[in-house]
Nucleic acid binder design. Structure first.
Length: 614
DNA sequence: CAGGGCGAAT
DNA sequence: ATTCGCC
């Protein structure tokens, strides 16, 4: 066999991927825990979109027709989940919770129920703090500012499951450092996962690896509420084969994130050499012949260039060939996206069985426009007193916004410039009575009228103006015929967010990126920079912390080992009086520089703050 | 292939 | 400004 090229691996990062277990069902269960012990499912239109594990034990599954579900399990408890605002709110709340742990702000959400966190910096910091001679008695610092914050852990073992499951730490010398880093990542992941469960009531399935791709895919090995870490060797050499390749090779090609339906079809077709593989009119799952990553990778003539030729087309990114080639080798250098203060677009849509009259259309557009304006007020509006966002995660849609509206002056963090109307026309009936199912959307955009930013009128009133003043005209351009159209979907969106003045990087004190920094990072600025000049901002900082949601308990002093039930050192008494209270405590040690008293495990981290450099 | 989104490519 | 791909 000729020596094939493989893309270079860069495994310097540690990335955690969270996937909340049966998220929609979990949102209802968090509000109403009694559902947990019942077979419980969430319905949208005619299908069960998700169900809890009690329901799955009885034979239910995702994306099942409600009829079938009720037939199989008549006792099933069903809630309607068509209004997704509660899921969006819960998703944001959990995202904020996870984000508070991050030092880098590299925290990226995918859909409502998945989050990646790049914890490379936290892991590197803690690697330096490790005592190699007593790995089993380690302490993971989750704050650079407060050395007491963190948890005790055993750095000589992995938390949760390793991949491969019979992994034993051995092998190449250069892998030992990576092994240790991933172990630290696994313990941090477990810490956050447990905090999510205990403080927020959500269980999650977690993957830990050196890339987004691997972290996401490996998590699936142990679900629900499990975690899995991809261990070295990650690349092959004469003496060892790559765990990454072994892992990814067994996957069906379409299961690889980044390879969607279309790309997978093209690849299957190529490997199966010709046959278009599947029957066009198949329901659910289809019989796409299973083509594994290994089959594609080992297929003759697979390289970046041939893949580019095979896969590029309208709408596909340039360099798709190289990108897919990397994915086939389990290589993914994409960054975990930086948490952003405002979304890049907001859209609202709904689908309809029949929408073909003007009065119906008006009703629909008014409802969507109202939701859109309400969303804009929730996501883009902030208190004007300090320029920081408030991030209300109201459980009841816009009610909080309305209620607090009168109390505090508000300010738009961003003003979308563009309004877009998208429809999905339903194909007319064929002569033979069948209907061609089309999922094609058509859209038209235009300038968003600025009156929507007015705050003196209700969202409802503004929505009506928006419909008559802009949306109807756009609709006519999309559907010039007076009648005859029949829509199966309408989508409204605002895009082209222009950040408003005072939100940019220039205004230091009002920089809204501060909104996304956890307390310790904000506080650190006080310690390492000119303290006196920052004093006027103290109030702002306090506001940031309190306005950033109810998650502050994670940063409280009592978090030390609080979520770990085993092998936690009892260095504090749990009463919150660990600070200098005059009590002498022989367990504590004293910093030789400033005299501060603290447990021994905290001293190394603490003393870093006496260094002029970070 | 349900339903609702998001972001990147035209 | 619009469509595509993906979750």
């Amino acid at each position: 066999m000729e020596a094939r090229h493989t893309p270079p691996r860069k495994d310097g990062r540690v990335i955690i991927h969270f996937d909340y277990d049966c998220f929609y069902a979990a949102v209802f269960e968090a509000k109403n825990p009694s559902l947990k012990s019942l077979p419980f499912a969430v319905q949208q239109k005619q299908i069960i979109v998700t169900c809890n594990y009690e329901a799955r034990r009885r034979g239910l599954h995702k994306l099942q027709l409600v009829r079938d579900a009720k037939r199989i399990c008549p006792e099933v408890v069903i809630e309607l989940g068509e209004d997704i605002s509660r899921f969006r709110d819960a998703s944001k709340e959990l995202y904020s919770f996870i984000r508070a742990y991050s030092w880098s702000g590299k925290v990226e959400r995918l859909g409502f129920d998945e989050v990646w966190v790049d914890v490379t910096d936290m892991v590197s910091y803690n690697m330096e703090m490790l005592n190699q001679n007593s790995l089993a008695q380690s302490f993971f610092h989750i704050s650079r500012a407060d050395p007491l914050e963190g948890f005790a852990f055993d750095a000589s073992s992995i938390a949760g499951h390793p991949y491969p499951k019979d992994f034993v730490s051995a092998g190449r010398e250069q892998d030992s450092d990576l092994t240790l880093r991933l172990r630290l990542g696994s313990h941090l992941a477990q810490h956050i996962r447990h905090a999510l469960e205990q403080q927020k009531g959500y269980t999650s399935t977690v993957g830990i690896a050196t890339s987004k791709l691997l972290a996401k895919v490996v998590g699936n090995l142990n679900k629900p509420k499990g975690q899995t870490t991809v261990m070295p060797p990650l690349s092959a050499d004469e003496s060892a084969c790559s765990n990454v390749t072994a892992f990814i090779d067994g996957h069906e090609i379409g299961k690889v994130p980044g390879i969607g339906f279309k790309l997978a079809q093209k690849l299957r077709e190529h490997v199966l050499q010709r046959p278009a593989t599947f029957d066009p009119g198949l329901v659910y799952g289809g019989t796409k012949e299973a083509v594994t990553v290994a089959a594609v990778r080992h297929h003759a003539d697979i390289n970046p260039e041939t893949l580019e030729k095979l896969l590029s087309g309208p709408g596909s990114p340039h360099g798709i060939g190289y990108k897919i080639w990397c994915l086939l080798h389990g290589v993914d250098d994409s960054e975990v996206g930086q948490a952003k203060p405002v979304p890049s677009q907001i859209s609202i849509e709904d689908s309809y069985n029949r929408l073909d009259t003007l009065p119906e259309l008006l009703k629909v557009m008014n409802a969507l426009a109202k939701s859109l304006l309400t969303r804009m007020r929730i996501d883009l509006l902030a208190d004007d007193d300090n320029g920081f966002g408030e991030e209300h995660d109201s459980a009841n849609g816009g009610a909080t916004t309305q209620a607090s509206h009168a109390a505090t002056p508000k300010k738009w963090l961003a003003r979308p410039k563009t309004l877009r109307l998208t429809t999905r026309p339903r194909q007319p009936l064929q002569p033979d009575g069948t209907r061609v199912r089309s999922f094609k959307r058509i859209s038209h955009s235009g300038p968003l009228p600025t009156f929507v930013f007015g705050l003196s009128e209700s969202a409802e009133a503004l929505a009506e103006k928006l419909v008559s003043g802009a949306l109807l005209g756009m609709f006519r351009r999309l559907h010039p015929e007076k009648s005859g159209w029949n829509l199966s979907l309408v989508n409204l969106a605002v895009t082209n967010m222009a950040e408003t003045a005072g939100v940019g990087k220039t205004s230091r004190g009002r920089d809204i990126s501060n909104m996304f920094r956890k307390q310790e990072d904000v506080l650190r600025d006080f310690r390492v920079t000119d303290t006196s000049s920052l004093l006027p901002y103290e109030v702002d900082i306090t506001d940031v912390v309190s306005s950033d949601g109810e998650e502050r308990e994670v940063c409280g002093p009592l978090t030390v080992a609080s979520t770990t039930t085993t092998s936690a050192p009892d260095h504090h008494d749990g009463s919150g009086s660990w600070e200098e209270d005059g009590e002498t405590d022989e367990e504590n040690e004293r910093c030789g520089y400033c005299g501060a008293r603290m447990p021994g495990f905290a001293l190394a981290a603490h003393q870093r703050f006496h260094s002029p450099f970070q």
